[in-house]
């Protein structure tokens, strides 16, 4: 008999195909489930496992209502801000995420944000969509060159290191700050700076790859933006909670920042309309891992975790151990 699974979201075709082949799963095609329906279906089907994403706020109230027969819940994401880990531990529910598989994809998108912000991609695209029809003067609509600039990386984890690797192709000088210096073979010539203020003062372009949570909330604020060199470029593809958006908007308006490239926001999916009204922003809707390849790999990794736990083996990516 196949294990019983509830998938509370739509997944790419090949992930859906594997769910169909390996699990007994009443899969409502074309529609996502809310918490109430998820809990109801878990009970009705006597499900063994749950596959979900950050759309489901996995707080204590929801976790406490997960029926006893559910042994593992796998979030198809690397982040787990939507999960009350303490409540899940108390309930003895194994919860897993999908690290590693989205590193390259997110690093690619970070470089896209850097290039798009420096080279004014939003303004250029808008010119084209309005029909163009006029060549520009030699001093008009100029962007900033990326190559040769100083790149400051805040958070030298997997994604930060993958960004550094790509930035080397642009001859950039790479600086980073991190709770502690990484091993030389991981830094590959990137220079460690002990604290954020020290890093910001030396960065023409700064990119955030830090964890969320209270210790990093609003780490970029009026005070820290003011430490950047005049005309710096700011990029964030990690967590919206890291940035005080009012301060960001002020820095973009005053010229302290030349431009910003963002993939994450404080109150997603409600993007501050003032950001969307600025010409010197390049804004994407949380697409860091949005490729067929990566989303498929994330789904497969989540299913690997579920399969391992249901087979009595340890989870591959448990949120705690």
């Amino acid at each position: 008999m196949k294990p019983r699974l509830i998938a509370s979201r739509q997944f790419p075709d090949s992930v859906a195909a594997r769910i169909g082949a390996e699990f007994d799963c009443p899969f409502p095609a074309g529609r996502d489930m809310d918490a109430e329906e998820t809990i109801r279906r878990l009970s009705e089907t006597k499900a063994d496992a749950l596959l979900f994403t950050s759309h489901l706020k996995f707080d204590k109230d929801v976790i406490d209502r997960i029926p006893e027969h559910v042994k593992v819940a796998a979030t198809c994401s690397v982040g787990f801000e939507h999960i009350d880990v303490a409540a899940a531990r108390a309930r003895r529910l194994v919860v897993t995420n999908t690290p590693d598989v989205l590193t390259d994809c997110t690093a690619d998108l970070t470089m896209l944000l850097i290039l798009g912000a420096c080279r004014r991609a939003h303004e250029y695209e808008a010119v084209m969509r309005a029909g163009w029809g006029r060549g520009f003067g030699m001093g008009e609509m100029l962007g900033r060159k990326v190559s040769g600039k100083r790149l400051g990386i805040v958070g030298m984890g997997r994604i930060g290191r993958a960004v550094a690797q790509r930035a080397r192709g642009f001859g950039m000088t790479i600086l980073y700050t991190n709770p502690r210096a990484v091993a030389a073979e991981d830094a590959l010539g990137a220079m460690f700076v002990a604290d954020l203020p020290g890093l910001l003062g030396q960065s023409d372009i700064v990119t955030l790859h830090a964890r969320g949570g209270p210790s990093t909330a609003n780490m970029m604020n009026a005070e820290t933006f003011a430490l950047l060199p005049e005309g710096a470029v700011f990029v964030n593809a990690s967590r919206g909670s890291l940035v005080d958006e009012a301060a960001l908007i002020a820095a973009l308006t005053s010229g302290r920042l030349f431009a910003a490239g963002l993939d994450v926001y404080h109150n997603e999916p409600a993007v501050d309309r003032r950001l969307a009204a600025l010409p010197n922003t390049f804004l994407l809707p949380h697409m860091g891992s949005a490729t067929v390849e990566t989303r498929t790999a994330m789904g497969m990794r989540a299913l690997d975790n579920i399969a391992a736990v249901l087979a009595g083996r340890p989870a591959i990516d448990p949120l705690w151990s």
């Binding site: 739509q10 790419p12 697409m287 949005a290 490729t291 067929v292």
Partner: peptide, 8 residues
């Protein structure tokens, strides 16, 4: 955010 949104 959605798992199948704007997949490139």
């Amino acid at each position: 955010w959605a798992p199948t949104q704007l997949l490139g």
